[in-house]
C-alpha cells in the first residue's frame, strides 16, 4: 500500500510543479513505482515539465467522469518504467472534479503504486481542497520571500484543519550569496515562523529553466546543484537520512575548466 503525498504552497510560481516532477522522477530513479497527478485543471503544466505533453489522450476529468478507465489515462514516462503521469484536463475547470472523486482516485492508485504525488494548484479554493482530499502526507514548497512564507503558513493551518498533520517544508530557489549579505530570508527565519520539519533546501539554479523547457527533470542531471538537492530530497521522502548539501559550495577552477571544455568532471 503506497503513500499519497500532496505538494502544495498556497502562492503560485514557487516551484510546486517543478518539485513534483523532480521528486517523482527521483523516487522512480530509486526504483519506486510512482504516479504523478496534476490537479491544476485548466492550467496544466506537469505534463510539459515532464516532457509528456504529446502523449496525452485521456485526463483526470475523463477518469472521474467515467469516460475512460484509470489505466487508459495513465501516461508512462519516457525514462522510467515505474513512473506514470495522470494529466489534468485543460478545457475544464476545478469544479469538474469533486473531493469524493479525488479520495476514490487516490485510494485506487495507492493500491498499485509506492508513491502517489499530487501536484496542487495555487490558491486555497476548490482545486486545493481536491488536491489535499486524498492525501495523507503533505510537502509545502516555499521560496525565501515574505509573501511565499505567509501563504505557506496559511496552508499549514488549513492542512491542520483538514486533519493533515506534520507537513514537511522545501525551501526553493535560495541564493546563499544573498542570504550571506542579509538581503534574503535565511532558513532559520523561515523555520522560526513556520515551525515545521525541513525536508530540503533547493538552491537557485539556471539549469531548472533549461530542464523545464526541455521536459527533462533536473534531478537526472548530475551537474545541476538543484538536481543534487532534489536527489537528496527524494531519498529523504523514502525515509533515508541524508544531510543537507553545503550551500556555500563553489565550483573549483579545474572543474569549471573541464566543464567549459565539455569534459564532465
Amino acid at each position: 500500500m503506497g503513500e499519497v503525498i500532496v505538494i502544495t504552497s498556497g502562492k503560485g510560481g514557487v516551484g510546486k510543479t517543478t518539485t513534483t516532477a523532480n521528486i517523482g522522477t527521483g523516487l522512480a530513479a530509486l526504483g519506486n513505482k510512482v504516479v504523478l497527478i496534476d490537479t491544476d485543471i485548466g492550467l496544466r503544466n506537469l505534463d510539459v515539465v515532464m516532457g509528456l505533453e504529446n502523449r496525452i489522450v485521456y485526463d483526470l476529468v475523463d477518469v472521474t467522469q467515467g469516460h475512460c478507465r484509470l489505466k487508459q489515462a495513465l501516461i508512462k514516462d519516457k525514462r522510467f518504467d515505474g513512473l506514470f503521469l495522470l494529466p489534468a484536463a485543460q478545457t475544464k475547470d476545478k469544479t469538474a472534479v469533486s473531493i469524493e472523486d479525488m479520495k476514490k482516485l487516490c485510494s485506487e492508485l495507492q493500491e498499485e503504486f509506492d508513491y502517489v504525488l499530487v501536484d496542487c494548484p495555487a490558491g486555497i479554493e476548490q482545486g486545493f481542497k481536491n488536491a489535499i482530499a486524498g492525501a495523507e502526507r503533505a510537502i509545502i514548497v516555499t521560496t525565501p520571500e515574505v509573501s511565499a512564507v505567509r501563504d505557506a503558513d496559511r496552508i499549514v493551518g488549513l492542512l491542520e484543519a483538514n486533519g493533515l498533520r506534520g507537513p514537511q517544508l522545501i525551501i526553493n530557489r535560495i541564493r546563499p550569496d544573498m542570504v550571506k549579505r542579509g538581503d534574503m530570508m535565511n532558513i532559520e527565519d523561515m523555520l522560526d515562523i513556520l515551525a515545521i520539519e525541513l525536508l530540503g533546501v533547493v538552491p537557485e539554479d539556471e539549469y531548472i529553466v533549461v530542464s523545464t523547457n526541455k521536459g527533462e527533470p533536473a534531478v537526472l542531471d548530475m551537474d545541476s546543484r538543484a538536481g543534487q538537492a532534489y536527489r537528496n530530497i527524494s531519498k529523504r521522502v523514502t525515509g533515508e537520512q541524508v544531510s543537507l548539501i553545503d550551500l556555500e559550495y563553489e565550483e573549483g577552477l579545474v572543474k569549471k575548466l573541464k566543464r567549459l571544455l565539455g569534459l564532465k568532471g
Binding site: 505567509r150 501563504d151 503558513d153 496559511r154 499549514v156 493551518g157 488549513l158 491542520e160 515551525a195
Partner: peptide, 9 residues
C-alpha cells in the same frame, strides 16, 4: 490555546 496561530486563523 495550545497551538501556533497561523496566517488566516
Amino acid at each position: 490555546v495550545r497551538k501556533n496561530l497561523r496566517s488566516g486563523q
